[in-house]
Amino acid sequence: MDLQIIDETNQVSQHQLDLVKGILHCASEYLNLPENTEMSVTLMNNEHIHQINKKYRGIDKPTDVISFAMEENGDESDIILPDDFNFDVPKNIGDLMISMDKVKEQAEYLGHSEDRELGFLTVHGFLHLNGYDHMRAEDEKEMFGLQEEILDDYGLQR
């Protein structure tokens, strides 16, 4: 996976950066994504995610994670390639934004480690980028079950 991680806070530890990278690689293998899949993760504070949440979702408060998926049925027919073109176009699944302030707050509230919370939010957002949601009970059961499987496989059990 081609992964770009941006730490806007300049306070995220190397351990946490490695955790995000590792769990996303684990999750991408779990979903059998192509090796040339691309995505980005931006780690930010509550103030910045609040601005994004208000602008793009109309919700005037900070949130823990926001997923911006690329078009699920993107039309690549607008791209003109030579007939002898022999290159796999990478699949860009989108961008995640995670509030590191919320990671700390929610880990404390839920009584588990910040690693567990960061891993959970990363996998949760990643699954949204890959078309999973939890709007209906059966979808929630599938998505949350898959989240737990990935987190357990990576070693971030509750």
Rank of each mutant, 00 (worst) to 15 (best):
K54N: 11
L43C: 00
S67Q: 06
L24M: 12
S40N: 08
Y56A: 03
E76D: 12
S77G: 04
H50F: 07
Q14P: 07
I66H: 12
E76I: 10
S40W: 10
N10A: 11
G22T: 05
L43A: 00
I79T: 09
V41M: 10
G22L: 02
I49T: 05
I59H: 06
I66L: 15
T37W: 00
L81K: 11
N45Y: 06
Q51S: 13
F68A: 07
E38I: 02
E71V: 06
K55M: 11
D18G: 02
L19W: 01
V41L: 13
K55D: 12
L31F: 05
N73P: 03
L31K: 04
M39K: 02
H15L: 06
L17W: 11
S67C: 08
Y30G: 00
L24Y: 04
N36L: 15
V41E: 02
L19Y: 01
T42E: 13
P34G: 04
M44V: 11
T42H: 07
E76T: 09
T37G: 04
Y56T: 02
P34Q: 14
V65D: 12
I80H: 07
E72W: 12
S13E: 01
D64L: 06
T42M: 14
L81W: 12
Y56N: 11
H48Q: 13
N53H: 05
Y30L: 01
T37M: 01
I49Q: 08
M70I: 05
S40E: 11
N32E: 13
E72I: 05
K55Q: 14
E38V: 07
Q11W: 14
M70W: 06
I80N: 02
I80S: 04
L19H: 01
N73M: 07
I79N: 10
H15V: 05
L33D: 11
K21Q: 15
D18R: 11
D18V: 08
S13Q: 10
V12K: 00
N45A: 08
I66N: 08
N10H: 15
F68C: 05
S28F: 12
E38D: 08
Y30S: 00
S67D: 08
H25I: 12
M39I: 02
H50W: 14
V20Y: 01
E72V: 05
Q14T: 12
S40G: 09
K61H: 14
H25T: 13
D60W: 00
I66W: 15
H50V: 02
L81P: 01
S77E: 10
A27Q: 03
I52A: 15
Q14D: 12
I59T: 09
F68E: 07
Q14K: 14
H48N: 13
E72Q: 10
H25R: 10
N10I: 06
E35S: 08
V20W: 03
S77H: 04
I66M: 11
P34D: 11
G74M: 07
